[in-house]
Design a protein around this nucleic acid. Structure first.
Ligand code: SF4
Ligand code: SF4
Lengths: 131, 131
DNA sequence: GATATTATAGAGTCAATAAGTCTGCTATGA
DNA sequence: TCATAGCAGACTTATTGACTCTATAATATC
């Protein structure tokens, strides 16, 4: 019951992109260096973010990644969902009807966390960091 | 980023013990049958609950498991912590000082979930179920 | 006190997932 | 056209989860 390291990389990279916020895209080499991770692996992670519409890529020389949307539209939850998927943390093989109370409570609990992550934007901590 | 099946077994078994609430202990065979899991494996899970002080075991004939504490003191969180451990879902290898804001927000989010699980008691759903 | 019954411990097995590599391909700016 | 970047998919390795097997220890009952 842990978040994957990939999620960690994704959060850090997005934070870097939000902080940089340049029009010019930033190459994966530069992004990978600061996190001590291989470029090919980080690239694979960033492709997921791109598919989720959070960032976009530019091939070729002077290429790299940049944000697509407005900075303040990017939440923690967006990134986590892009990397970890959107299925519940409590999946039960059996389906014992709608009145399954254990599952209901577990999902309520999970929702509390997701709600917080949805309210928390990357740009918030980018601001705090720069002060 | 999923809860283990062991946690699921633990929750169901505890619910069964709370619902039964007999003075006589209940054997692992009986508990395992309803969940379609082997006795040896469930036993191992229940030993964790016992070590966490949630249930207690009795060896020998007519032995089994029963609750130790008062029913309404047992929360979802107790059980989850007993099985999954208490370490955070977001552990970072590097420790970049106290001002690590990503980690701080992730742990805030996690706390929201834990808080809910702490407030939710097994006995609550036992009541609902019996109605 | 012998015996059947029940939990406990720990090693060992098997499968699934996470984490990361390698290689060849595609897109694009200079 | 060529050097530079991302992309895709197959592949490998490490870690963890989900069990099983077996031998041991405790205890109620006879
Ligand atoms: S009661 Fe709910 S959580 Fe339990 S096994 Fe059935 S469906 Fe799963
Ligand atoms: S900034 Fe925080 S979360 Fe990021 S690598 Fe450092 S310690 Fe880990």
């Amino acid at each position: 019951m842990k978040f994957s390291k990939a999620t960690n990389y994704a959060l850090h990279t997005t934070l870097a992109l939000v902080s940089a916020s340049s029009v010019k895209p930033i190459g994966v080499q530069q992004l990978a260096k600061s996190q001590d991770v291989s470029t090919t692996y980080l690239s694979k992670i960033l492709t997921k973010l791109a598919k989720a519409g959070i960032i976009e890529s530019a091939s070729g020389a002077q290429g790299g990644y940049r944000l697509t949307r407005n900075k303040d539209e990017i939440t923690f939850l967006d990134i986590i969902h892009a990397i970890e998927g959107t299925s519940s943390m409590f999946e039960c093989d059996f389906v014992h009807g709608d009145e399954c109370l254990i599952q209901a409570e577990m999902k309520n609990a999970e929702q509390k966390m997701l709600q917080y992550l949805k309210e928390t934007k990357i740009v918030d901590i980018a601001h705090k960091q720069s002060t």
